[in-house]
Design a protein around this nucleic acid. Structure first.
Lengths: 353, 353
DNA sequence: ATGAAAGCGCTAACAT
DNA sequence: ATGTTAGCGCTTTCAT
């Protein structure tokens, strides 16, 4: 039994299918009386427009595609949640898929979205830095990148460089000179930008960069427990940790607690559940997935109206949430406090530790 | 510029569109040579079948619909993640939407999925206990419920009753008689089943049920901080807490830590990130969203082949993960230990506290 | 093993 | 303000 179609509604209300179509799409020129008769029939029959037919005809469907690393990552889950909430208001559905950080899969899912499902737009956390095959669809399907920039397309990102500088400067001002960069992953421009912020602050403070204090993700994996032990087992171990992403931060925090070294200073790039309940509470750079997701779909909706002028990066502000773990002093606390603050990043106090 | 269609491929490879269709759908009777010629053309043109056209014709599309409470809830995010992973293998896309626990929205999204997008199947965490309007589509679109049962449809759930009994019995055996049931929410059968497990164990142990130890979610909200304070401020306060769901558990844990009462015994229904890092580490009943999600889509795929016989409940096993918070003794520890264990639930040790 | 033709439910273009 | 017609890209008969 197929669901009722536009023809059934037309028959029920004694008008042509075109009039039904007009009512459904909210077009102006329909007699109020006719309209209400049609609406009544729609209601009685439980008619729902078939999106397949609609998008076959119009070339673009009633869904937007969202392509992210993984839904199991709370950051992306919240991001999609924000997008879905906004899409609902717009009457759009959300197709989700994950890349698993694989460029081939990214490509398959993307073409599936665009050529297969004819999505009305795409929001993507890109794995590759550029997606040349999207050029062909530039004027058909708007694309907005999130979390990481994407060459030739709009993107919604945070100021990774400035935010990281703020965190590392705080360590330096507290007298830390042995600062670990936890989870360097060269695959991502964002992480590269964060790493740049780290090295630049060290340089500006006259601290030598010690490669043994940098933890690398190689081949997509890093054993957090082992790495924490390695670092703390060094002859001249780090007194402060900078975790470059939330997943790493959870791994770092967990391993510090397991070996009873949670008193070592640490700041996380990205907030996470219960960060404020741990002792010490974990200081973090807060990048709000709801704000980022909302900004992305907002921009996507704009792009549907007026095709892109010049692609640009939309920078969402972050804040350094001081909860305790990032305010633990180093062995040689300075007495001169540097008052510079980073451009797009503000200091915000959290619950006291 | 529209993407290439089946006609373009047919022209390129010098065959009819029907032959291309055969190749794309992996039908048997195509000459190997013809097939490779077609595949080559597909590759060269970057042809991707238009799912709108396909589903318009065939009546069922290339996506499954997943409808859950909220993607911001880590349990459901992981659930969807598991579903998406399996769907990918099947060549199916995932349409995701949330109900926000609203029955009207549930209905809209569901009809949008089925009549609108013609999904190949639906996985739903139902808000309403029954969805009579789904009857009309019984033979068109398979439906599997998750987390909560749904009248007249298959569902994948856990044994809420037995698992809760196991936790409450542990409290009783440790000498607790003042046990709080944290977050009673009558809207959900699952929570009602958990509550039943709680009251039954109390009754069997001869402990009077004290209504002031039961925290209610009214109108969908419960102020965890205030509720924790109320309970601990009682004349005869609880010495043990049972949190009926993960969200409540996080709220409970957070508020206990904030007021320095984390030493009060507590067990959570549902695991959460960092539960094992807190001190005391939080004991929980572990219901694995990956297992539940995978079971649900597996069943959905079965249903596509062979329409339902009798709807049934698929019970996924849970385990009680002892990490410390649930093993804190009560004021009058018994010396007789009751060895009964619940049917579908097993005891599993976690990292020592 | 391959093809021709009809038509899925809708919208757009063009009447009236 | 309303109706008629064509056709979106594919799958499904039914032929050959």
């Amino acid at each position: 039994m197929r669901p009722p179609g536009i023809k059934d509604v037309a028959a029920q209300s004694g008008v042509s299918i075109k009039t039904v179509s007009r009512v459904v799409n909210g077009e102006a020129s329909v007699h109020p009386e006719t309209r209400s008769r049609v609406l009544e029939a729609i209601d009685r029959l439980g008619y729902v427009p078939n999106t397949a037919a609609r998008s076959l005809k119009s070339g673009t469907g009633g869904a937007i595609g969202v392509l992210i690393d993984s839904l199991a990552d709370p950051f992306f889950a919240s991001l999609v949640s924000a997008i879905e909430a906004r899409a609902l208001k717009e009457g759009l559905s959300v197709l989700v898929a994950s890349t698993g950080l694989d460029e081939g899969r990214e490509r398959d899912q993307l073409t599936g979205f665009i050529a297969g499902h004819q999505v009305a737009g795409v929001i993507i956390a890109p794995v590759a830095a550029e997606l040349p095959y999207l050029e062909a669809f530039r004027n058909v399907t708007p694309v907005v990148a999130v979390d990481r920039p994407l060459a030739a397309f709009d993107s919604v990102v945070v100021d990774d460089y400035a935010a990281t500088q703020l965190a590392i400067r705080q360590f330096v001002e507290l007298g830390h000179t042995r600062i670990a960069f936890y989870d360097r992953d060269e695959r991502f421009l964002t992480i590269r930008r964060r790493y740049q912020g780290y090295t630049d602050v060290l340089a500006e403070a006259g601290i030598d960069l010690d490669p043994s204090l940098v933890s690398w993700t190689i081949d997509g994996s890093l054993d957090y427990a082992a790495e924490t032990e390695r670092l703390l087992g060094l002859e001249d171990p780090p007194t402060a940790f900078f975790a470059s992403n939330a997943k790493a931060a959870i791994g770092l925090t967990t391993s510090l607690h397991r070996i009873g070294r949670e008193g070592t200073a640490h700041i996380a790039f990205g907030d996470f559940t219960l960060a404020d309940v741990l002792r010490p509470a974990v200081s973090c750079i807060n990048q709000d997935p709801f704000v980022i997701g909302t900004a992305a779909i907002e921009r996507l909706l704009e792009l549907r109206e007026s095709p892109a002028d010049e692609p640009r990066e939309w920078v969402v502000p972050t804040s350094l949430v001081s909860r305790g773990s990032g305010e633990i002093p180093g062995p040689a606390q300075r007495h001169t406090v540097d008052a510079r603050t980073a451009s797009t990043t503000s200091m915000v106090g959290g619950p006291a530790a």
